[in-house]
Amino acid sequence: MELLRPSSPEEATGALGNGSRALAGGTELVPLIRDGLVKADTLVEIRDVVPRGVTGTRIGAGTTLAELELDGEIPQALREACAQAASPQLRSMGTIGGNLLQATRCWYWRLGFDCWLHGGETCFARDGAQREHAVFGNDKCASAHPSDIAAALLALGATLRTTRREFAVAELYRLPTDDDRNVTTLAPDELILEIELTTPDASTYLKAMDRRKWSFPIVGVAAARFGGETRIALAGVAPIPWLLDSVAILDEATPLPGTGYKVEIARALVRRAIEAI
């Protein structure tokens, strides 16, 4: 394995693709490499070339969750999502850009089963252990997306600036298909550089977990109010972060036998989040 330390975003993207991977905080990538789930010939350390810190409504993708959870200027939903993610140790290193790109916690996927998301024929969770799995978008793959922060940014209507383009955070994600099992639209040689926030009148992030700290979301609910409009997005309920166009969409959930309880939790948290803002 080779480790590169580029000095500019252009140099970094030039080194990406063809079996190399970008390394920021490492909290996600390092164990995936150790477990053999990511094969990389080359690691490209991007910490020195990706912006870090908050400037007005712009957040550098290299800003750590620990820095954001203490920032009184960013919207409450994002601050709460950062504070409730992972553990202090992981928030010290984990970056907001990396958090948006983390893989599912589905144990079939994490244990390297030849599952549909890995390119195989079968989603084992659909007929197996499925308590943590999806209630939306789950007909091919029942994995649940774990990012609290992605849900917060979806509700906040944030946009991303990468080395190639600017686009709504919603467009970063795609439901995987038979032809393309990726859950993001990011090209292998594309880097997220900045997140541009809008400023809501009020926002919040509520998270149901197996315990009160250091757990991935069973259901996370981000809500943001802009004048008379309220935007709601969910974490932990679909293979990608899930924007809820209306509360009524919860009636259209397609839970598995083991995940029906998530719909009820989502209903309760959505109600509480709307009341809170």
Partner: peptide, 21 residues
Amino acid sequence: GECGSCSVLLDGKLVCACLVL
């Protein structure tokens, strides 16, 4: 990164040494 038994300080910040290269 789940158990914290490898916790060290990196530039004064608490990290899991197993997740840092």
